[in-house]
């Protein structure tokens, strides 16, 4: 029997091995640079994300982490370099194209529809997958009804998965922050993404909420096989969760590798602790 879930994150060992063995690249960032006017946000960064892994992007404040995510999901367009997703290389892509190709994300500051219920918010994540047009949905008969029921079932499975049954009908604006984050994750999951981008999924959470969230992230990776790229400040979380870590500082990549490798990297230590000049 496999004993001990306490150290190293429950269920992590076999899954990580599988991810490491599986070397297929899902997304490759190649020599990407991005600037706003004269400010260089990202300069000549390259890294890849392999299928099924949990990839962390870390770095001090202003290192260009969120910009990187925005480049990946097509919100920003890099001046130089290319992004290759599922074999297709591109330079420019609209966010909704990224979404329909299987990239979903959550935001640093929760971006939900505050007045809508948890259920409706997650349901909105299904809208790209709805095929009947507005009038069919309005009539809600025959195929439109069947379609909605099928989608609702999927959403209920996500609610069950994230253990938020008790807030199913609560407007999300009334929920505590930790739960809102969970709903946001639910909405991203509703898109059944191949690549899930999480922008500081644990910012502002207490220890217990962080542990819950870590558990859900691992379960998502486990159960759905979703590839995950996350930005996070809590180093404990990053080291426990991720298979590989890329470190940015002032828009440049300074390290890339397993958590152990990155932890020992002198450049990373300097970037975080500062260097005496």
């Amino acid at each position: 029997m496999r004993v001990d879930p306490q150290n190293g994150g429950p269920g992590s060992a076999p899954r990580k091995e599988a991810a490491r063995q599986n070397g297929e690249v899902l997304l490759a960032v190649d020599d990407v640079s991005l600037s706003f006017g004269g400010v260089k946000a990202i300069s000549h960064v390259s890294f890849d994300i392999r299928k099924g892994e949990i990839r962390a992007i870390i770095g001090p404040n202003g290192a260009g982490k969120t910009s990187m995510l925005n480049v990946i999901n097509g919100f920003y367009h890099p001046q130089e370099g290319t992004i290759t997703f599922k074999g297709a290389t591109r330079r420019k892509m609209r966010p909704h194209e990224a979404a329909s190709q299987g990239i979903a994300r959550t935001f640093q500051n929760v971006a939900l529809f505050k007045g809508m219920s948890t259920l409706d918010n997650i349901m909105s994540g299904r809208s790209l997958k709805m095929h009947r047009n507005f009038f069919w949905q309005l009539l809600w008969v025959g195929p439109a009804q069947r379609e909605e029921i099928a989608h609702r079932r999927r959403v209920e499975e996500i609610i069950d998965f994230l253990e938020i049954q008790h807030i199913r009908k609560t407007p999300v604006g009334k929920l505590p922050y930790g739960l809102q984050k969970r709903v946001e994750l639910g909405r991203a999951l509703a898109m059944e993404p191949e690549l899930l981008l999480l922008d500081e999924p644990m910012a502002g959470m207490n220890l217990e909420e962080k542990e819950d969230m870590s558990r859900f992230i691992l379960d998502v990776s486990d159960q759905f096989g979703t590839t995950i790229a996350l930005i996070e400040h809590d180093m404990g979380v990053v080291m426990d969760l991720s298979d590989r870590v890329v470190v940015l500082d002032y828009g440049s990549k300074i390290a890339d590798g397993t958590p152990e490798e990155v932890r020992g990297n002198q450049k990373v230590i300097d970037a975080y602790l500062g260097v005496a000049h």
């Binding site: 029997m1 496999r2 429950p10 998965f161 486990d222 159960q223």
Partner: peptide, 8 residues
């Protein structure tokens, strides 16, 4: 069965 897939 959730989370128990990798167990012996």
């Amino acid at each position: 069965p959730r989370g128990l897939r990798d167990y012996d």
